[in-house]
Computed example of a mutant assay.
Amino acid sequence: MLNMVSIKRKNNYTSRDYVYESLKENIISLKLKPGTNISEKEISELLQVSRTPVREAFLKLAQEELLAIYPQRGTFVTLIDLQHVEETRFIREHLERATVREACKNFSNESIFKLEENLALQKICVEEKNYTKLFKLDEDFHYTIVSGCDKKLIWSVIQQMNNHLNRIRILRLADNFNWDLILSQHENIISAIKDKNQDLADRVMEEHLKELIFEQESLKKKYENLFK
């Protein structure tokens, strides 16, 4: 039996959308671990849909490199690819460093309030040791900076390549990474934006997004079966 968390089906979801979003959420959150074998029959029964939308969702997830489909062998959740992780991290670092510099020039009080509100919720997650919620708040924090600069297309670009990176970020949080450091860096980013200090904001964002470099190999050694 697969260990999947159900998601709420939105009114505008087609069956394929529902299957796709359900599987992607469970793959990114590592509820469906890398290397897990899944079948159309199993997923269709679990989500109570026909096999056609499951097949379509499988193909879409395969295009995003979250599933690998092998004829006559089966369908598997892909292993985390560290080369892919590092390339995505590198691109994200440089895009977000440029964006946070823009935020220091022109960022509304409303957007600053959203960041501060988000940070307060992150602190609650740390107290509750809720890494899945912390991950989502972390994503929202970075999105707020990008959207506050009216650079939403940048976020779309990041999301298109984020799949392997997000899985190792979840793994890092679940492995009891230093969450206080994340909060401290977020707090420093907010302060730099409020002070319109572009160089400081750039430096803190760089440090923040480079932390993962130092964790990758240790995580691979500890969870070798999850990596390519």
Rank of each mutant, 00 (worst) to 15 (best):
E127C: 02
D138L: 03
A103K: 08
R101Q: 13
K123T: 07
H142M: 07
V146Y: 06
V146L: 08
N130C: 07
F141G: 09
Q122A: 03
Y143P: 00
I124R: 11
N106Y: 06
V126I: 14
D150N: 14
I158A: 07
V157E: 01
T132D: 13
K123W: 03
V100E: 09
T132A: 12
N118E: 05
K133E: 10
T144P: 02
K136M: 11
D150A: 10
N109Q: 11
E128H: 05
E139S: 12
T99D: 07
K114T: 08
C125G: 01
K151V: 01
L153T: 10
N118H: 02
A98T: 09
K136H: 14
S156W: 00
E116K: 14
L121H: 14
V100D: 10
E127R: 10
L137A: 04
L119V: 03
E102P: 00
K105N: 11
D150K: 12
L137F: 09
Q122Y: 04
K129E: 15
C104E: 00
T144I: 00
S108I: 04
D150E: 13
K114C: 04
S108W: 07
F141C: 11
I158E: 07
L115H: 09
V100F: 11
E102I: 07
I154L: 15
E127N: 12
S147A: 15
T132P: 07
Q122P: 04
C125F: 02
E128C: 02
T132E: 13
H142R: 08
A98I: 09
S156Q: 12
I124W: 03
D138P: 01
F113I: 07
Y131D: 04
D140F: 08
I124P: 00
S108K: 07
H142V: 00
R101D: 01
R101T: 13
S108N: 08
Q122N: 06
S156V: 07
C104N: 00
K114I: 12
L153V: 14
N106M: 09
D150G: 06
F107R: 03
K105P: 02
K105H: 08
K136G: 13
N130I: 04
K152E: 13
S147G: 06
C149V: 11
A120Y: 05
V146T: 15
I145P: 02
E139Q: 15
K133N: 06
N130D: 15
Y143N: 04
D140T: 12
D150Y: 10
A98G: 12
G148A: 00
E117F: 09
S111M: 13
I154T: 15
S147I: 01
C104M: 08
R101G: 08
F141A: 09
Y143D: 07
E102D: 08
T99M: 06
K151H: 07
L134N: 05
T132C: 03
F135P: 08
